[in-house]
């Protein structure tokens, strides 16, 4: 008798993902699907796709889904959750989407304590549009709109979203994780699962910031990109739990 020790989560479709080798999106998609499978929520989940590389999310998940306007997923997710308080509502956003054009929407959804889970992919760059500077681009990091490297005098400073949102009373859970090493991937899954469970328990707004990679626009190989996450990104964006109402944090 054979035993299955590894398989594709039930909530993912058979569509081949378009993500580049070394990109974190595929890993995070899989983590979400595994958590939803384990929570037996496949038929009870609605996912809000951003504008950015993850815009194809509706093709990859078997959940009901919606293409949101750039940056507005937390608002659209609010509308959905208010109609369907018993559904698990996930918004999935990149750094340009969430921390630049959509900053108002994420702050206010968090402040209202909307019972949604935001998965925030921070790779410090605009991927879909071809490598422009993001609000989270590191000082000195090159982008097509900061070609000599981000000059904070000219371009301003990066934004640490988890820290910022953790000052609010609405969020129930905020953690920053990474997907650059197997150990970090395991921790990332734990965080996302916890966030979804908090949503299910109506504790409040939940967000998991995932420090991720963009080898294509960073101009690095897949492995070098993962090393860059550990060496450069994580020191600027420290991992950890920033808010957890159950832990009095």
């Amino acid at each position: 008798m054979s035993t299955t020790i590894f398989q594709k989560p039930k909530g993912l479709t058979d569509t081949r993902m378009h993500y580049c080798p070394g990109c974190g999106h595929g890993i995070v998609h899989r983590i979400i699907a595994e958590c939803i499978d384990e929570m037996n929520e496949i038929d009870n989940t609605i996912i809000c796709a951003p504008v950015g590389c993850a815009v194809f999310i509706p093709k990859y998940f078997k959940y009901d889904s919606i293409h949101c306007a750039h940056g507005r997923a937390p608002a659209t997710g609010t509308g959905i959750k208010r109609v369907h308080p018993d559904k698990t509502v996930i918004t999935y956003q990149g750094d340009g989407d969430l921390a630049s054009i959509g900053m108002a929407e994420i702050v206010h959804a968090a402040a209202r304590g909307e019972k949604i889970t935001t998965i925030f992919i921070n790779n410090g760059i605009y991927g879909m549009t071809g490598g422009q500077m993001a609000p989270t681009t590191l000082p000195g990091m090159r982008a097509t709109t900061s070609q000599a490297g981000r000059d904070v005098e000219r371009n301003g400073n990066p934004i640490r979203v988890s820290e910022l949102l953790s000052t609010l009373d609405g969020p129930a859970y905020i953690e920053r994780v990474a997907v650059d090493t197997p150990a970090h991937v395991i921790k990332a899954k734990k965080a996302i699962k916890k966030a979804l469970e908090y949503q299910k328990a109506n504790k409040g707004f939940t967000m998991v910031e995932v420090v991720s990679s963009c080898p294509t626009n960073w101009g690095l190989s897949a492995t070098k990109a993962m090393e860059f996450v550990g060496e450069k990104m994580i020191p600027y964006y420290p991992l950890g739990v920033y808010k957890d109402v159950e832990e009095g944090k």
């Binding site: 609605i46 809000c48 919606i66 949101c68 306007a69 507005r72 608002a75 659209t76 997710g77 609010t78 509308g79 959905i80 959750k81 208010r82 109609v83 369907h84 108002a104 929407e105 702050v107 206010h108 209202r112």
Partner: peptide, 26 residues
């Protein structure tokens, strides 16, 4: 029902998009 004073007209119409997309009269 539910009323939300949104943070902007932009957010409001995108909330409408989500709620209308969920089949509710909004």
């Amino acid at each position: 029902g539910t009323f939300v004073q949104a943070e902007s007209e932009v957010a409001a119409i995108n909330m409408v998009y989500g709620a209308g997309g969920s089949g509710a009269r909004v």
